[in-house]
Design a protein around this nucleic acid. Structure first.
Lengths: 241, 241
DNA sequence: CAGTGGTCTAGACCACTTT
DNA sequence: AAGTGGTCTAGACCACTGA
């Protein structure tokens, strides 16, 4: 709850972002590192740290010998794939005001695939949490999460509306540290197509992912299905260094 | 002892990668930054730079106060989405030894979408380069590239087998700087399905992307289709900082 | 050529985790 | 308390770009 004062680097980042948004650099050129350092009263190292992180975020581009420039393309990226964490936030980033409904919350025996990924024996119990995210009654994202039964108590539907990483932390105390995600093309069928409000056979992207806690133990298996017409993933690809 | 050319930072990176692969850190724990700096005879800043980049690549994880650790999950990532540049390399990373065939190389009038993206008038000529990447006669990736007609001479089929960024550089002198890519689910139909050797209606992922040169001018529109059973994209997602 | 970002050093103190 | 990574400084030289 205590707001720790942002680091100098972070303050420089916000400062630069603000100026970019404000249109302080109409030609897209950002002042030289030494100049910024002098103006802001910090060391060039700190400025460079901030610029590195902004470059990593896709906000600016640096060209040796030439200068640092605002990256117009980066402003088009609404969701950076590697930082997706809560679908509610993703939808908000897209300008939506999402609602969440818990479609399913029950225990069932794990199938062989899920058991293997989560390090369980086949037939061990998993808790299934199925959620639908809507914008104005229009379904956009459907997620199916499976958690080892031993890592959950007897949650109420209301509890399950929280982002899954928070739900998991509340139930088990385990912190979700990272996901390993496969991007998989699917054709939506049957009930799943109906839930998302599309015709059977509609092609869609599914993220199939395994979540690990801070000690690299698998704690979550999830699949997410998207309405491609309402939610599109975009990324920048640059030549590797 | 250590020489120039690859930067010190890069040498430290390769050194650490080698030791990781060699199994020098059986418990997954990497020596402290100060220790590495002393051992290698470089400053801690250089070591930190190397570790930052390895962390960014997903090779290691750093935990404040605890240490730096090998990231087992990162070793499973064969293709980092944000660094895809040549599909031949992507396939090689997957352990394949790909071959390339140029299926199509001809000029045609641009449709409205392509014209708009490339900043052309509808009907202006674009050069279409369609390539198929195979592993052992098995088709894996199909790419369709469109370049403004003014940016290409009269290339031969042989020229078009090179990676598209090199082809573009050879033809026009323009350097491809980055791509803006949409990840789109499609159902493969007709000729395209046949070319990739799958049943009509098979769901697939398509990368729809626009390539820009170093001066942010659009120079390339491309779409790529994948055999999901042969080429899978995987990524790590971590909590944003 | 002057000016830019890229690399590197040596050292200081802080925030956090583990013992 | 000891040890780790995180932040920050001040300064040096190099590699590259552009006029």
């Amino acid at each position: 709850m205590i707001a720790r004062s942002p680091s100098l680097t972070e303050q420089v980042m916000t400062h630069l972002k603000d100026r970019i948004v404000r249109g302080d650099f109409p030609d897209g050129r950002i002042p030289a590192e030494t100049e910024l350092a002098a103006d802001l009263g910090v060391s060039r190292t700190t400025v460079r740290d901030a610029l590195s992180r902004l470059e990593h975020e896709g906000v600016v581009v640096r060209k040796q010998g030439a200068g640092t420039f605002v990256n117009a393309a980066g402003l088009q990226i609404t969701s950076r794939l590697e930082e997706i964490w809560s679908y509610e936030d993703v939808l908000r980033d897209h300008g939506y005001t999402p609602s969440v409904e818990v479609l399913r919350l029950e225990r069932e025996p794990a199938g062989p695939d899920v058991a293997s990924v989560l390090g369980l024996a086949e037939g061990d119990e998993v808790l299934v949490v199925e959620k639908l995210f809507r914008e104005n009654d229009e379904p956009v994202v459907l997620t199916v999460n499976m958690i080892p039964g031993t890592l959950a108590g007897s949650p109420k539907r209301r509890d399950a509306r929280a982002p899954i990483y928070r739900f998991l932390a509340d139930q088990s105390g385990r912190q979700l540290a990272y996901y390993l995600s496969d991007i998989v093309p699917v054709a939506l069928q049957g009930e799943r197509a109906a839930t998302l409000g599309v015709a059977p056979g509609t092609p869609a992207i599914s993220f199939e992912e395994t979540g690990y806690d801070t000690e690299d133990r698998p704690v979550l298996r999830a699949a997410s299905f998207f309405r491609d017409d309402l939610l599109r993933f975009r990324l920048i690809r640059r030549k590797a260094v």
